[in-house]
Design a protein around this nucleic acid. Structure first.
Lengths: 135, 135
DNA sequence: TTGATACTTGACAAAAATAGTCATATATAG
DNA sequence: CTATATATGACTATTTTTGTCAAGTATCAA
C-alpha cells in the first residue's frame, strides 16, 4: 500500500517542532512527545538517528534537549526521511544500485512505471524543505 | 522506505504478459511463472484477485488460463495495483477517509507533504495504462 | 554534593505485513 | 478417463514495523 511509516511521520513531526523553536532554547524529547503524542522511547530513537545524520544537535542534562543544526530552509524533507528510514527506494533496481538489478532489466516492461514513481517521490521530498512546512 | 511490494510487481508482470497475448489464446499461470520466475502458487493467488476485480477472465480446464477482460488501453496501472493490494493510501487521513483523520488535522503542519506525495503517486498510477508498458 | 532532568546505547519483544505453501476440489479438452 | 488448469481457504515462515527496557552518562540548580 506504500503507507508512510510512523517513523517518517513522527520524525517529521519532531523536526517541525524543533523548527518552530529554531534559534531558541533546546526542546526536550519530553516536550515533543507530550505535544505530539508520540511514544517517548520511540521518539528518542528517532532523535538519535536524526543526530547521527547531522540534522539535530543534542544537549544533555537538565535544560538540555535538541536543536536543529541547520536553518530550516536548508533542511530537505528527503534528508529527514533518509535519516530515520534510510534511502527512499521504491525499487531495488536503480541507477545507484546496479548490483541489485536483475538480469532482465533491459527487457523488463514493468520497470518504467516503478522508476517513474521512484523518481517522482524522491523529487517531491527533495524539493520541499522543513521551512516550507512551518508557519 | 516505500518499497513496491512483490504483489504489485508480480501482478503487473502478469498483466503485461496477458497484455502481450490480448486477443489470442488464454495464457496459463504455468506459462507466466516460467517466463517471469514468479512463485507459481503465489501468482495463482494474485490472478484470482485480478479476476475478482474484473481485470482478467479465467478459463478452467485443459487449454485454459487467463485473458484480459478489457483492452490494455482501458486498464490503468492503478486498477491493477488496487486489485492486488487495495487502495494506494500513503496516509490514512485523506478526503475519502474522513473517519480515519486525527483531530489535529487542521493544525497538522506535516500533513501537506504527505498529501502531496499521496496525490502524485496516485496521479502517475492513474495516468499510465497497461498499453503504455507494452511494445 | 545531591537530586532531578535529559540524552545514550544496545538489546529485546510484540504485532502486523509480506511472501509463499498446501490440500482439496472443480472444470474441461481430447 | 486422464492430463491439464483454475478455485478456495487455511496455514506458515520471514521480515518489517513499532515499540519497550535497563543501565549508563551528562548537566544544571539548589
Amino acid at each position: 500500500m506504500l503507507k508512510i511509516s510512523t517513523r517518517c511521520r513522527y520524525g517529521l513531526l519532531a523536526m517541525v517542532e524543533l523548527g518552530q523553536c529554531y534559534g531558541q532554547a533546546p526542546v526536550s524529547a519530553q516536550e515533543i512527545f507530550k505535544k505530539q503524542h508520540i511514544p517517548k522511547l520511540y521518539l528518542q530513537q528517532l532523535l538519535v538517528k536524526l543526530r547521527r545524520n547531522g540534522l539535530v544537535e543534542s544537549i544533555r542534562g537538565a535544560k538540555g534537549g535538541f536543536i536543529l543544526r541547520k536553518d530550516p530552509k536548508q533542511i530537505k524533507i528527503l534528508d529527514i526521511v533518509k535519516a530515520v528510514e534510510g534511502p527512499v527506494q521504491l525499487i531495488s533496481c536503480t541507477k545507484q544500485n546496479k548490483d541489485k538489478c536483475c538480469s532482465k532489466i533491459k527487457e523488463c516492461l514493468t520497470r518504467p512505471v516503478w522508476v517513474e514513481l521512484h523518481e517522482v517521490v524522491n523529487k517531491v521530498l527533495n524539493e520541499r524543505t522543513l521551512y516550507d512546512l512551518m508557519r
